[in-house]
Design a protein around this nucleic acid. Structure first.
Lengths: 200, 200
DNA sequence: TACCTTTGTTTAACACTGTTAAATAATTTA
DNA sequence: TAAATTATTTAACAGTGTTAAACAAAGGTA
């Protein structure tokens, strides 16, 4: 009875097709363009068929998230394998993490909730968005005793600060609750660390 | 002709009411629950009225974003005002930033694209999500010569790494393009910095 | 082959979304 | 009071995720 197997294989194939189609649509047109009917179009079925394979749209996204984590893990492992010393391994791994994020931008957004959701493009052109930036760079300039506010050095330091604080914030907002203590610790350590690296 | 003024004042008031209603709905039911008709319900009008005040839903979000930046800026300025030394000012400001994020979670999400959008709650319960974590903590444990993988020290270091890398990644994914050079610089600096702080 | 049952697939519908045009109600102006 | 202007709503469009019912195709059994 190989026919049963053949059918199972076909079913597995359209399951994969659904996931592939979803990701392709997102890559081509962005997250907000993803719809069940569009997926159905690509796999040349009608929308309700998808519910034979996934219980909801969220289930599809969850499966893509899972694939994302597996892919990331593979690349981390591979990066680690290239070195012997832990310090070197660690650096290579974070670089691999970095590269994964940009090579698989859509998956990364899904996994870690970085949304170009609503009006993030717009808010780039928002004058008010520059206010915090100018406040910070001014003080950093004071600290470094540099006049030129747009100096690359200030910019770099600012990004270092911002990255670590924003990273910590968003990790927490997304509900990956590490303990309150650890957060405070990380925050304080990081801030004083960067400040020291400036004044030293 | 004070009646014109009165009408203008009323119009300004419903404009504010719309923004308030939107934010309240989001605070109560989350971003995904926000709809024009729901806003209309709260301000006791029908949906099309809103388009007399805002050209689109995105325009409402943009206005909220603007308010968010202004509020954040105010608090940064206030924090700065409490100290004289730049180093102290800087620390106070980043702490204010941190506090703003959690006190105004919804606004922060809007401003910086931290979405609890799709399946971020779900992905917490995803086994695969622990894979990268265990890979990293293992190496950090090696580096620190600590056996106990769940040690708080390792956890702290891991969060420090993750925060800065994730922060830098998401800032870039959201299109706040700083130059490629600066990014690489920040990334390398930060990683080696934390590694040094471990081995030292 | 003929029938019945199971499986696969589609059509139609529901309740919702943002948004717009037309119709109606209220108010101001002449 | 009548006309004109403004305020507000109703109805509609095209889209969304999702479900139930209708239909088509295949398989098994007699």
């Amino acid at each position: 009875m190989g026919s049963k197997d053949r059918i199972l294989r076909l079913k597995e194939e359209t399951r994969i097709n659904i996931l592939d189609a979803a990701l392709q649509i997102v890559k081509d047109e962005g997250w907000q363009a993803l719809s069940m009917r569009k997926i159905a179009d690509v796999i040349e079925y009608t929308a309700p068929i998808i519910y034979e394979y996934f219980s909801s749209k969220d289930a599809i996204l969850l499966e893509l998230t899972r694939k994302g984590y597996l892919l990331l893990s593979r690349e981390l492992q591979e990066a680690k394998g290239k070195y012997q010393l832990p310090a070197e391994q660690l650096e290579a791994m974070w670089l691999a993490y970095w590269n994964f994020a940009f090579a698989n931008k859509e998956l990364y957004q899904l996994m870690f909730g970085v949304s170009t959701n609503c009006c993030c493009q717009l808010s780039n052109k928002l004058d008010e968005a520059d206010l915090p930036w100018s406040l910070f760079t001014k003080v950093i300039g004071d600290l470094m005793k540099i006049e030129d506010m747009k100096s690359d050095v200030i910019c770099t330091k600012y990004y270092t600060f911002w990255s670590i604080v924003h990273g910590l914030v968003s990790i927490n907002l997304l509900g990956r609750n590490s303990s309150e203590d650890i957060n405070r610790q990380v925050l304080k350590d990081a801030i004083t660390g960067v400040i020291n690296s400036i004044t030293a």
